[in-house]
């Protein structure tokens, strides 16, 4: 039986990844360790001293860890949708080569985004293992938090790929991170509850996909009641994923099929 076209793209990406996996695994391991040590343990000891009841009822390290897991998923998804896609159509022009084979534009986009999902899964699994070692939650709780994180990664990768295929220079991507990804990383309830935001900004946080991932990850890992029903959050993230994929396919077609 013929291998589905999108899977051929995933296989090729995996093959390319074999060249860099060592460095990449070290990064995805060191990142959570450093963040959890500095912010969770270091800063957390100050926070916990001032808040005997904890943040949202738990110690700061426990509050931070699931949120950061979801935020890391978002960053990984964004990097796959941004730099990888720009390399594909502009720097390395590998997409042009792929599209001279039986692979179609739709299959290319689905393959690229599936691979982004695989990368998010790898990064968040390592992160989850670190969270368990830090004693924040049980292995089951950490694994449960990986699911919403995956969804956040995909809900980010798809629209970011759609954005990237429409920009001509990497300055566009730098701005996307500066004005989009980084603020979302900081203000979506990852480091502090969104109830601390100025009243005007709170609805904005609710619109950000990461916020829903953070809430669900905390619910999955710690049993903290989420601010939004998880069903609504999942539907919202799926909408970003599907809509982003559709928008990316249109952009890929406009850029590469002419």
């Amino acid at each position: 039986m013929a291998t589905p076209l999108a899977l051929r793209v995933v296989e090729a990406e995996a093959r390319v990844y074999r060249r860099v996996w060592k460095g990449s695994v070290v990064t995805s391991f060191l990142n959570p360790v450093l963040y959890l040590l500095a912010m969770g343990v270091g800063l957390g000891s100050l926070v916990d001293r001032n808040l005997p009841d904890g943040v949202a009822g738990v110690g700061y390290l426990a509050f931070l860890a699931p949120g950061l897991l979801a935020a890391t998923a978002m960053q990984t998804g964004a990097a796959e949708g941004a730099w990888k896609v720009m390399a594909g159509f502009k720097w390395r022009k590998t997409y042009q080569a792929v599209l001279a084979t039986p692979v179609t534009i739709e299959a290319l986009v689905l393959g690229v985004l599936t691979w982004a999902g695989v990368r998010v899964l790898m990064v968040t699994m390592v992160f989850a293992a670190v969270v368990v070692v830090f004693g924040v939650t049980s292995p089951v709780g950490a694994l449960a938090a990986v699911l919403p994180a995956m969804l956040v990664g995909l809900a980010t990768a798809a629209p970011v790929a759609g954005f990237t295929i429409r920009v001509d220079h990497d300055a566009g991507l730098t701005n996307l991170f500066r004005f989009g990804i980084v603020p979302m990383f900081l203000f979506s309830g990852t480091f502090f509850p969104v109830s601390q935001l100025p009243e005007l900004l709170r609805p904005v946080a609710f619109a950000v996909p990461l916020f829903h991932g953070v809430e669900m990850a905390r619910w999955a890992a710690l049993g903290l009641a989420p601010a939004v029903s998880p069903v609504a959050s999942v539907a919202y993230l799926l909408a970003w994923t599907v809509g982003g994929t559709w928008w990316a396919i249109r952009g890929f077609r406009r850029r590469l099929w002419r």
Partner: peptide, 20 residues
Amino acid sequence: NLDMELTVAENLYIYGRYFD
């Protein structure tokens, strides 16, 4: 439009896989 980051043989290998 070869993949500069891969080896000669890897370029051919991946291309072959696109054709399944």
